[in-house]
Design a protein around this nucleic acid. Structure first.
Ligand SMILES: [Mg+2]
Ligand SMILES: [Mg+2]
Length: 801
RNA sequence: GCGCGGAGCGA
DNA sequence: ATTACTATGGTCGCTCCGCGC
């Protein structure tokens, strides 16, 4: 901090040590010897002698390892016998607690092959762990937070690796710790720069060339709470500029130069810079960006367009690396391969591009909107209209060259560019992207940048890495040899779903709630195990009260209820469905979920009494905790996940199906109520009553009966429907009555064509009209007539066209 | 009815 | 016109559309 401003600082951590584990043959630490000496070693000097004994026992192992390491040109290593747990999928590592040999040596030395074996050890784990991951896990760094950095030395400017304001070096990762007293420190603001490029198309090479770049910069952005527009738009905390260039072989239109200098003079800074070439434009842009030294780059489809164009043009125009690399915070000398994989639209920036902006976060509001909103289109124009209530003028690259004919139109172009940057920025605030992703990151302990990219699997991966590490587990390697099963099991499963699909041939999932929408692009793989049970709906129009009961967070609750974990469920090597655990000891996953649920409960209790920004902060935190708990199951069933455990995922969904079926049976057979539908974690009960309080009383009874069967699982009344049209599985609409006593009514539409974005507006509007009529409560004749009339009218209107 | 491909809703 | 998982991408269930047989 200088004065009241925060600045960037790069910390170079030297001497990172690899941490690998050799799994000894059973003869190295004989079980009876170990338990005998452990029993005696309760006092401290006895533990000294324990250590001595362990070193003694492992001497053969150690010398063998030492020899093999030396063969591999690894010289500076330390070996220590330690007690660790294992609970994962490798069959060559015993499950449970045991002594293993920990080997530390510098990352500078080469990684040893993962399949290295010896007479005294039969497996090696952690050989390829990344230094960054190890650092975060060992130092227990869970997302952005204050760190204490001790014994650092400032780096002379000639040896810097970064463009940061400060750069220091520490000699050991242990010089860095999470600052425990950080609650007393203010959360620093971040600098956010919104970028928008305007390009023309070079027909010959079929590439975009940049003619203008606009940047809007917010210097005081909060990351702990959402910000209202009046706060982030406060004068003095925001700045902007546009860099523009003339078209090749032509000059700027008359009056532009004068206008630019007037504007700059008036603003007291370069708000409009005119350059003579694309290369000069890029140079200027990089200089201005490096002055801003922003923490976050934001833009609409910035990862799919602007950054890509920017770097490709820098390459083509031979912008020196000392310039283009300022787009990030690391100094770089060679341009990485910009396109590698990821040519799919909407899948984020390529790794090469991401590496260029190292040190800055990337917030693509196109990708964020796809994740957080449901819209028929995610264009900036559409989002500006529906989300921000603003008009946006669309400018295609083909419209641009003519705009160079007059100063007036060219200034319009500047305005459009700056407006687009502004709208994207506004969208970012509107969606609270930074507070939400920061919170998610602090819960899981991964990298913030990855959360911004989506990377749900990695979030869960880090959450589990931290948890298992804290309990002294050896963590599964990233590229475990998972060559066994693969596709063989999946075929079989699809083939032998016994019974038709009447009431039991269904599957299961993970109970997503509101969020997570836009899903274009990625072709889904076929399912590899059964998911949630979907009851056959009793189709029809219901006009008396219907109860919607729904289990809260079904899968997280199942994991806790049945203590499902890597550490508790015995899995056979053939990948068959395991039995429920009998173990009393709580597993790691259940404990983890319990703590997430408890934290959420606490935050929600604060939320009740808080107000204003504090309240919004708690709300975000609460959402993030729920999201995290709910996404864990998905990763157990994710074949590329480091913690892939299909048997566990399968066991969870099986419990889900049984619980739903048992609930249906109880409600129908014991309570004599009519269940008309249910999906995965919910049941709908037709009460046949006109009296809402009687209906609610029934709900209370059902809830009581169901909940007393379980320890963690909890069913709750999710809604009361006054009338409902039930068409098919996952397709229905209903008038939902508010439960807060206000009796407000609202039509809920699920799965119907009118909620899908692949139907025309006209079709959706007509559908909605029909639905309103059908649910209006009018007589059948009236409804039919009204719909018929309306359709005739539409037909007439269409004929006029 | 089967197969393939494509949509994106639902939990 | 075609398409190879050195990195990486959360799960499954249920319509709809369109082609070919
Ligand atoms: Mg639920
Ligand atoms: Mg539900």
């Amino acid at each position: 901090v200088i004065g009241k401003r925060f600045h960037s600082c790069c910390v170079v951590v030297k001497n990172m040590q690899r941490c690998i584990y050799a799994i000894p043959s059973s003869s190295v630490f004989p079980r009876d010897t170990i338990s005998r000496i452990e029993k005696n070693s309760t006092s401290s000097d006895a533990s000294l002698s324990l250590r001595a004994t362990l070193h003694e026992l492992s001497s053969g192992l150690k010398s063998e390892v030492a020899e093999k390491l030396s063969d591999l040109n690894v010289s500076n290593f330390v070996m220590t016998p330690v007690k660790r747990n294992y609970a994962f999928e490798r069959t060559d590592v015993p499950i449970g607690e045991q002594y293993v040999l920990k080997i530390n040596y510098p990352y500078k030395d080469p990684a040893v092959p993962a399949d290295l074996r010896g007479d005294h050890f039969h497996a090696l784990l952690g050989t390829n762990n990344s230094a960054l991951e190890l650092f975060l896990i060992k130092r227990k760094i869970k997302g952005p937070s204050w760190l204490s950095i001790s014994k650092f030395v400032a780096c002379p400017s000639t040896q810097r690796v970064s463009w940061c304001k400060f750069e220091v070096t520490v000699d050991s990762p242990k010089d860095i710790s999470v600052l425990m007293t950080s609650n007393t420190l203010e959360v620093p603001p971040v600098v956010v720069a919104a970028v928008n490029l305007k390009t023309i198309i070079n027909e010959k090479h079929n590439v975009h060339e940049i003619v203008s770049a606009s940047v809007i910069c917010c210097h005081q952005v909060k990351i702990d709470t959402p910000m209202r527009s009046e706060d982030w738009q406060k004068r003095g905390t925001i700045s902007h500029f546009t860099v523009m260039r003339k078209l090749e072989g032509s000059i700027f239109p008359i009056g532009l130069t004068k206008e630019a200098s007037d504007r700059n003079q008036k603003a007291g800074s370069n708000v409009l810079a005119l350059e003579s070439s694309e290369r000069a434009l890029l140079n200027r842009l990089m200089i201005e960006l490096s002055k801003l030294d922003c923490d976050v780059l934001v833009g609409h489809n910035i990862s799919g367009f602007d950054l890509d164009v920017l770097l490709h043009r820098a390459q083509t125009c031979k912008v020196p690396s000392s310039m283009w690399s300022k787009i990030g915070r690391l100094r770089r000398s060679v341009m990485p391969r910009l396109t590698k994989g990821n040519t799919l639209y909407g899948s984020g920036a390529s790794p090469g591009i991401m590496s260029c902006i190292a040190g800055r976060l990337l917030c693509d509001t196109y990708l964020c909107s796809r994740d957080l909103l449901r819209e028929v289109s995610y264009s900036l124009t559409q989002l500006a209209e529906t989300q921000l209530k603003k008009d946006r003028r669309e400018v295609s690259p083909h419209d641009i060259p003519p705009m160079f004919q007059s100063a007036g139109t060219l200034l319009k172009l500047v305005e459009y560019g700056e407006t687009d940057a502004w709208l994207s920025l506004e969208l970012m605030f509107h969606l609270s992207v930074l507070p939400l992703t920061r919170q998610l990151t602090n819960i899981s302990g991964n990298l913030w940048g990855k959360t911004l990219q989506g990377a749900r699997a990695q979030r869960v991966e880090y959450l589990l890495l931290h948890s298992f590490h804290a309990k002294k587990f050896i963590i599964p390697d990233k590229f475990a040899a998972r060559n066994k099963e693969l596709n063989s099991a999946k075929r079989k499963l699809n083939a032998d779903t016994e019974g038709g699909n009447a009431a039991d041939g269904a599957a299961d999932p993970s109970i997503d709630d509101e969020v997570h929408h836009g899903d274009q692009g990625k072709a889904r793989k076929g399912p590899s195990y059964a998911g949630g049970l979907v009851l056959e709906p009793k189709k029809g129009l219901y006009d008396k009260y219907i109860l919607l009961l729904d289990f809260n967070s079904l899968y997280p609750s199942i994991i806790q209820e049945f203590n499902i974990c890597f550490t508790t469920v015995e899995r056979s090597s053939d990948g068959n469905l395991p039995n429920l655990p009998t173990s009393k000891a709580s597993g790691v996953l259940p404990e983890l979920l319990k703590s997430l649920v408890e934290r959420r409960r606490m935050v929600k209790s604060w939320l009740k009494t808080a107000s204003g920004l504090k309240r919004q902060q708690f709300d975000i935190q609460q959402q993030a905790l729920k999201l995290t708990a709910n996404s864990m199951y998905g990763c157990l069933g994710f074949s590329n996940s480091r913690f892939f455990a299909k048997p566990l995922a399968e066991l969870i969904t099986l419990q889900g199906r049984e619980i739903l079926q048992n609930t249906v049976d109880l409600v129908q057979n014991n309570l004599n109520l009519e269940v008309i539908y249910g999906d995965t974690d919910s049941i709908m009960i037709y009460t046949g009553l006109d009296d809402i309080s009687k209906a609610k009383a029934i709900a209370g009874k059902v809830i009581q009966e169901v909940n007393k069967k379980y320890r963690c699982l909890e069913i709750d009344l999710d809604g009361v429907y006054k009338r409902m049209l039930l068409l098919k599985k996952k397709k229905y609409a209903a008038i939902k009555v508010a439960l807060d006593g206000s009796l407000r009514e609202n039509i809920e539409r699920k799965g119907l064509d009118m909620v899908r974005r692949d139907w025309s507006l006209l079709s959706k509007e007509i559908g909605d009209f029909c639905l309103n009529q059908i649910l209006s409560g009018g007589t059948c004749d009236d409804v039919v007539e009204s719909i018929h009339n309306s359709l005739v009218q539409v037909q007439a209107q269409m004929k006029k066209w």
